[in-house]
Simulated scan of single mutants.
Amino acid sequence: MNTGWNGDAVRLDGVRKEYGKGVIALDGVTLAFPRGGFTAVMGPSGSGKSTFLHCAAGLDRPTSGSVVLDGQELAGMSETKLTKLRRDRVGFIFQAFNLLPALTVEQNVTLPQQLAGARPDRRVVEEMLTRVGLSGRRKHLPGELSGGQAQRVAIARALVTRPPVVFADEPTGALDTRTAAEVLGLLRDSVRATGQTVIMVTHDPMAASYADRVIFLADGRIADELHAPTADVVAERMTHLGAWAAPTHASQRRGQNTSPARAGA
């Protein structure tokens, strides 16, 4: 069902996610992500960042509330349709790269299309590899690449089909500062060049400073929002949120069960 959320790429309305009895990872989150925006999502450990990303991307189902992804209401959608939606309309970038070691750079980039039974457009693939600075490495295996180059392959794989929405989960967590800056610049440029929407979960204030805005989560709720962020201001806000989401407060609301793994780090 197409719900036409006024052009938003992703929208969550009253999303709640509960694990077991009294462990609340998301507590009524309502949030919109406009098309062509770059948003960073931050928060203390156990704030619900990962759960938020999984629900927003259709990787997990909320306990209640609504998620609309690229105009599609996810509630009631079968697993088959969800899989097709994610494959065709969403790109994913993870900290661990998730490249297949036996495949070349080019084969890793085109793998999702091959699995979907689609023939990759070689011109588009070449353009993407050039854009991420790997046109001369297309025949290399992942084991022959640096960490930064491997993440560039992952970015090319996520962007090659020009999906409307890209979710990035700590995409620079395993990279040095210089390489991280290059990767973040690629993400920011893709937003500006193609109008794609990037939603990035990160713990790094410097990474968040590349975004157009930062959403702060604490204890499963939206705690703050910052536009045109700088690393210093983001770090200052995170310091305050760390105190606001202290374990004592969290345990009172979650019935004394505050396992970060269950609550969604």
Rank of each mutant, 00 (worst) to 15 (best):
L82Q: 13
T130V: 15
T104P: 00
D70I: 09
D70H: 10
L141K: 09
K139C: 09
G117Y: 06
T80P: 04
Q149G: 05
G143M: 06
A150T: 03
L141H: 06
L100E: 01
Q114A: 14
L82H: 10
Q114G: 05
L129N: 03
A75G: 11
R86A: 08
P112M: 07
E144H: 05
L141P: 02
F97G: 01
A150N: 05
L129T: 03
S64W: 06
M128S: 15
S64N: 09
R152D: 00
V68P: 05
L129R: 00
H140Y: 03
L59H: 08
R138D: 04
E126F: 06
M77K: 10
R123I: 11
V153Q: 05
L69S: 12
Q151H: 01
V68W: 07
R122L: 10
F92D: 07
V153K: 03
T130L: 15
G147Q: 10
L74K: 07
N108K: 00
R123C: 05
T130P: 07
P120H: 11
T110N: 03
L82R: 12
G136S: 11
L141A: 06
Q113K: 04
E106V: 14
P62M: 02
E73P: 01
R131G: 12
L129A: 04
S135T: 14
P120D: 13
L103Y: 13
R61H: 13
F94W: 15
G147C: 04
Q151T: 02
L115F: 08
G147P: 08
E73K: 09
T63Q: 02
F94A: 15
S135G: 14
D70P: 08
E73W: 07
P62Y: 04
E73F: 03
M77E: 12
D70L: 07
L82G: 11
A102Q: 13
R87K: 03
T80W: 10
P101G: 07
Q149Y: 07
G91Y: 13
L129V: 08
A102I: 07
D70K: 05
G117W: 08
F92T: 09
G143A: 10
Q113T: 03
K84R: 15
R87Y: 05
S78G: 14
A118P: 00
L141Q: 06
R87E: 03
Q95K: 04
Q107M: 01
L99T: 01
G147V: 05
S64I: 04
K139F: 14
L103E: 08
P62H: 06
K139V: 12
R137Q: 15
F97S: 03
F92Q: 05
P112T: 09
G148L: 04
F97M: 00
E79A: 11
E127T: 12
L103H: 12
E79F: 02
A150D: 00
L111Y: 07
R138G: 00
R152N: 03
T104D: 01
A150H: 00
S78D: 06
L74G: 00
